[in-house]
């Protein structure tokens, strides 16, 4: 390394000051101007997080939000060179540091994750779509779905209720989030546990709709003949909304 330890230490001092805002004396610098660097770097991180997590920011008190933001900026070493990906590290940091427990708001992690997912699915690289045909038999042909999607299981219905209203609603909730192929827009669909499992078997086990509903019905102890109509209507809706693209060739 051609850089001297001394110069490295000076650079570290300035970077640490930006992260913590704790006053520092740096040789050969104008003390009255150092604060601009703290302000500029902090504003970038604060702004990117506020943009990524508008609902979480609004749901938490100002004090809680900035406790998380300040601690993250001061202590976490932000790894990604891409600012748009940086808020994911904030979600992980908050989860690892158990802010949901500290603030008595057990839904925080899920709320952050949910907001991040919307960004990720909207922005992530396009995934390969298998060749498919648009005409087919919805019950018996194998279905092709839009690849940029996530089936999310939640303990708190953060997509339906806000803040303290969530506290007594702990349960099992499922949401299908996906990117529409034509517009790139993100769609959210609430699912029952039954429909969530149906989607999962279609996507992961590549069962056709009929087999998937059969398997799910068995798992839930429901009569297949009763659930098939419901499942078919649901699949038609998924097709209309753009999650189901067509049928395997």
């Amino acid at each position: 390394m051609l850089l001297k330890k001394e110069t490295h230490n000076i650079q570290t001092k300035l970077a640490d000051y930006c992260k913590t805002g704790i006053d520092v004396t740096i040789e050969g610098s104008r003390q009255d101007r150092l604060h601009h660097y703290r302000r500029l770097t902090y504003n970038i991180v604060k702004g990117a997080l506020a943009t990524a997590y508008p609902i979480a920011k609004k749901t938490l008190s100002e004090n809680e939000w900035f406790t998380m933001v300040d601690s993250y900026f001061a202590n976490h070493k932000m790894q990604t060179p891409l600012v748009w990906k940086m808020p994911f590290e904030f979600y992980e940091y908050c989860k690892d540091n158990k802010y949901s427990e500290k603030f008595g708001k057990p839904y925080i992690d899920e709320l952050l994750y949910f907001e991040w997912l919307e960004i990720e699915l909207h922005t992530m690289e396009d995934m390969a779509i298998p060749v498919y045909k648009e005409e087919g038999d919805l019950l018996n042909d194998r279905i092709v779905v839009t690849p940029e999607h996530e089936l999310v299981g939640l303990e708190y219905p953060i997509h339906k209720f806000k803040g303290n209203d969530l506290l007594d609603k702990k349960g099992n909730y499922f949401v299908l989030i996906f990117r529409k192929k034509d517009t790139g827009a993100i769609r959210f669909i609430n699912l029952s546990a039954f429909l969530a499992l149906t989607v999962q078997t279609i996507v992961e086990e590549r069962l056709n709709l009929a087999d998937s509903i059969k398997k799910t019905s068995e798992a839930f102890g429901i009569d297949f003949n009763k659930s098939i109509q419901h499942g078919l209507a649901f699949a038609n809706d998924l097709m209309a909304q753009g999650f189901i693209l067509g049928y395997e060739i």
Partner: peptide, 13 residues
């Protein structure tokens, strides 16, 4: 610096 991005421009000595 020291394996942490800051996303703004700090002056090199």
């Amino acid at each position: 610096c020291d394996n942490a991005h800051l996303y703004d421009l700090l002056p090199i000595p």
